[in-house]
């Protein structure tokens, strides 16, 4: 069962620019699915449309095309019943700054029948939040933790995090991620996280979707993605050879003397080695695993050059 499903989702913003027809479309034809119990990371550069996609899913914006279903309900119909099972955390969300941390928790508690006072107490201590201090007096990281606390204490079925790490120092990031990880281990929670902070996301996610200029490039499980990307280094035994036409799934090929490097985007040990041997006979082939960040950068470059080519 999918906890979130979008089909051909598109959304736009109203602008003051008549030349843009008063509206500018920032998300086009986004289709994705988040399986229940998984941690889904939506990756993309700044302005890729991650926040807009989340706003469309959370009924903060109305889709212009397509639909999003969250917890099995059309996003446009999301109401208190569904929100009582969703924890939404965004750096843009305005907190009632005049409240203290304690007042915020006291205010939120009655809205959630599943509010867990013991968990609240535990997280409050873990996050080291001063209960009596007003939210406006807290640092950015502390405020983020207060948001997280007020969204975790009722054990939501779905936790939606929009750019949760931006502007946080490494220590707070670590506490934040640890909080999410620990709590998600307590139950069968699903997490949807949007970020351009790939290292942090890598520790959390099972599924990855990459969004670029409002379009979904792919959605894939982390395991599969990390498995199919390898940095290949080939040592040419018989001296330098001229690179000929290479397969399309070999990205960023480069040659330095007797060494050829490229990224295999559909790596399968036997098939890739066989293909290498066909291209470079008698060469030694070495395959190195890649981090999610490296894969993301390669894909982003490839998309950009593809887009440039299409424009030309």
């Amino acid at each position: 069962m999918n906890i979130i499903e979008t089909t051909g989702l598109a959304g736009n913003y109203w602008t003051t620019e008549f030349s843009q027809g008063w509206r500018t479309e920032v998300v086009h034809d986004v289709t994705l699915a988040v399986p229940a119990g998984s941690v889904f990371a939506l990756l993309g550069a700044n302005g890729a449309g991650k926040t807009t996609t989340i706003k469309l899913m959370m009924n903060l914006l109305a889709p212009t095309q397509g639909e999003a279903r969250v917890l099995g309900v059309d996003s446009r119909q999301l109401g208190p019943r569904e929100y009582s099972k969703i924890g939404y955390i965004s750096e843009n969300q305005k907190l009632p700054d005049w409240m203290s941390v304690r007042q915020l928790l006291d205010y939120c508690r009655p809205f959630y029948p599943t509010w867990d006072a013991a968990l609240e107490k535990k997280l409050l201590a873990q996050f080291d939040l001063p209960p009596a201090r007003k939210l406006k007096q807290l640092s950015r990281g502390m405020r983020m933790k207060a948001r997280l606390l007020s969204s975790l204490a009722y054990r939501p079925t779905l936790l939606v995090l929009d750019e949760p790490f931006s502007g946080l120092d490494p220590l707070v990031r670590d506490e934040f991620v640890r909080g999410v990880l620990e709590v998600s281990e307590l139950g069968d929670w699903s997490v949807f996280i949007s970020s351009h902070d790939i290292e942090e996301v890598e520790r959390l996610c099972d599924w990855i979707g990459v969004l670029d200029i409002g379009r979904m490039q792919f959605v894939e499980s982390t395991e599969s993605l990390l498995g199919r990307f390898r940095r290949i280094e080939i040592s040419l035994a018989g001296g330098a050879a001229r690179l000929g036409a290479l397969p399309q799934d070999w990205l960023e090929p480069e040659q330095q003397g007797e060494r050829v490097r490229f990224i295999a985007s559909r790596y399968e040990r036997d098939a890739t080695e066989r293909a290498c041997c066909e291209q470079f006979p008698a060469a030694a082939v070495q395959a190195f695993p890649m981090t999610l960040r490296e894969i993301y950068v390669v894909l982003a470059r490839a998309n950009r050059s593809k887009a440039k080519g299409a424009a030309a």
């Binding site: 903060l60 914006l61 019943r81 009582s84 969300q93 939120c108 809205f111």
Partner: peptide, 21 residues
């Protein structure tokens, strides 16, 4: 305006609070 109805950044809107309430 303590719980504004315009915009996408309001605190209350992603909480289980109905507009009627």
């Amino acid at each position: 305006l303590d719980d504004p109805l315009v915009g996408t950044e309001m605190f209350w809107v992603t909480r289980p609070i109905s507009g009627a309430c």
